[in-house]
Lab assay of single mutants.
Amino acid sequence: HAATELTPEQAAALKPYDRIVITGRFNAIGDAVSAVSRRADEEGAASFYVVDTSEFGNSGNWRVVADVYKA
């Protein structure tokens, strides 16, 4: 099962156990969220919340930071 994305309210009520950072070329924010979901799932997380997204220069590469939560 894939890790689910939390709302800001849900994330605020929970304590993350880790923070992950992924970088890559994403065509849309949805693609980045899917990549975070896969990584969170690999780490055994039940859910995640994207904290920050930023573009690296003009290369089209993105850096996505997310907190991950157990259950």
Rank of each mutant, 00 (worst) to 15 (best):
H1M: 08
A35T: 04
D52T: 11
F26Q: 01
V33H: 08
R39W: 10
I22F: 03
Y17N: 03
A71H: 10
D18W: 10
S37K: 15
S59I: 09
K70A: 10
W62G: 01
S37W: 06
A3V: 11
A32E: 01
T4S: 09
V65F: 05
V33C: 08
D18L: 15
G30V: 12
V51N: 02
A28N: 15
V33M: 13
A40L: 05
A71M: 12
S34F: 10
A12V: 08
T53I: 15
G44V: 02
S37C: 09
Y69K: 03
R39Q: 07
D67F: 14
K70L: 11
K70G: 09
N58P: 12
P16G: 02
A3T: 06
A35W: 06
R63L: 12
S59N: 12
I29C: 10
A28G: 15
P16K: 03
V36L: 10
T7A: 07
T23M: 11
I22Q: 00
V36M: 14
F56K: 05
S54D: 07
S54G: 08
D52M: 13
G24R: 01
F48Y: 08
N61T: 13
D67Q: 06
T4Y: 14
D18S: 12
I29G: 04
A40Y: 03
G30W: 12
I20F: 05
A28R: 11
S37T: 07
A46I: 11
S37D: 02
V65S: 04
A32S: 03
A12Q: 10
A46P: 05
T23A: 05
A3Y: 03
Y69I: 02
E9P: 06
S59M: 10
I20S: 00
G44A: 04
E43H: 14
N58H: 12
A11S: 05
R19H: 02
A40Q: 02
D18F: 11
I20V: 06
Y17S: 04
D52K: 09
V21C: 12
R19N: 00
H1L: 07
Y17T: 03
T7C: 08
L14E: 05
Y17G: 02
S37Q: 15
A35L: 06
T7W: 03
A32I: 14
A40P: 02
V64Y: 03
S34M: 14
E55G: 06
E5P: 08
A46C: 13
V68N: 00
A12M: 11
S37H: 08
A12P: 03
T7I: 04
A71F: 12
F56Q: 11
A40N: 03
V68H: 00
V21D: 02
E5H: 10
D41R: 15
D67K: 03
Y69N: 00
F56G: 07
T4R: 14
D52Q: 13
Q10C: 13
G60P: 05
R38A: 10
V64T: 01
N58G: 13
N61A: 10
V68F: 15
P16H: 03
E43W: 14
A11G: 02
D41V: 15
V51S: 02
E9F: 10
P8G: 11
E42N: 06
E42Y: 10
V51D: 00
N58V: 11
V33R: 08
H1S: 10
N27S: 12
V50T: 01
A35Y: 07
F48R: 01
D31T: 05
V36F: 00
